[in-house]
């Protein structure tokens, strides 16, 4: 199929970017979206132009590295999928596709479609861990945890930190990302000990990174490749309110 691409090109963090037009022919419907971009980049190399830079790693939908706005939606037209798991069969011959980086003040653009998501790392560093030594992996099984709790914690832990929640939020809120880690650790006995200080430090870090307020539009859950539930946000709010009430 033949595609008309409008891709955001930006030299570096400070320079002014704009959409550039490309036409790509002979795109197979079996290609993944990133393979389509590889094809474009090959053509650009042959012409001696700078390639379109974008993040990617596993291309299996589990690493959270890839992620762009495709036709105005995070990770493209399908809900709950990563960009690498989107295939060209979701598009038609002759389609125009807008490709832009995830945008938020806390996600500065590094170049083209590549963004700096270290703000997420700093949120995790602020409290998304357990300080006490919990021993080797088999020792975890020595603490009984009921099945439902284990499953719920694992559902929250599934977040891959791609940033689609922020990109799709009208307020660029990082509530879903932060809450997934808060809820994951608050559910488990190893994490409960520090639950009160964790939720406060992580939410403070989230604020100081410049993310916006959560308005509960629930768009984040729709776009999240891991289907992280918005109930994690409710859980985070509960944990935060509890920590404030019990605060000395």
């Amino acid at each position: 199929m033949k595609l008309y691409l409008k891709i955001w090109r930006q030299e570096d963090r400070t320079s002014y970017g704009k959409l550039a037009d490309y036409t790509l022919d002979n795109v197979s419907e079996h290609m993944s979206f990133l393979e389509m971009l590889d094809m474009l980049n090959e053509a650009l190399v042959e012409k001696g132009e700078r390639v379109v830079e974008f993040d990617h790693d596993c291309r299996e939908g589990i690493c959270g590295q890839c992620g762009v706005m495709i036709n105005g939606r995070a990770h493209g037209p399908l809900s709950n999928t990563t960009t690498c798991q989107l295939h060209m069969r979701s598009f038609k011959d002759g389609d125009t596709i807008y490709i832009e980086p995830f945008r938020a003040t806390a996600f500065p653009i590094i170049r083209d479609l590549k963004i700096d998501r270290t703000s997420f790392d700093r949120i995790i560093a602020a409290g998304g861990f357990i300080s006490a030594s919990t021993g080797q992996a088999p020792e975890a099984n020595s603490i009984p945890i009921n099945h439902e709790t284990a499953e719920a914690a694992f559902d929250s832990a599934a977040c891959i930190g791609c940033g689609a929640c922020v990109a799709t939020c009208k307020n660029s809120s990082a509530a879903l990302f932060t809450s997934a880690k808060v809820a994951h650790l608050a559910l488990l006995p190893q994490g409960k000990e520090e639950a009160r200080t964790r939720v406060k430090s992580m939410m403070n870090q989230m604020d100081s990174e410049g993310f916006g307020h959560c308005t509960n539009t629930e768009a984040c859950e729709v776009e999240c490749p891991q289907e992280i539930s918005v109930l994690n946000i409710a859980r985070m709010n509960y944990e935060y309110n509890k920590s404030r009430i019990l605060e000395k």
Binding site: G72, R103, A104, A106, H213, T215, T217, E218
Partner: peptide
């Protein structure tokens, strides 16, 4: 205050924006 801060957090606008398809109209227009 919340609206002002959210504007600052959102930064640059998308050139092509279809994000509205993922949420209810009233939640975006409070």
């Amino acid at each position: 205050v919340v609206t002002r801060k959210n504007k600052l957090a959102s930064g640059k606008k998308y050139k092509y924006d279809r994000r509205s398809s993922a949420s209810t109209w009233q939640s975006r227009n409070m």
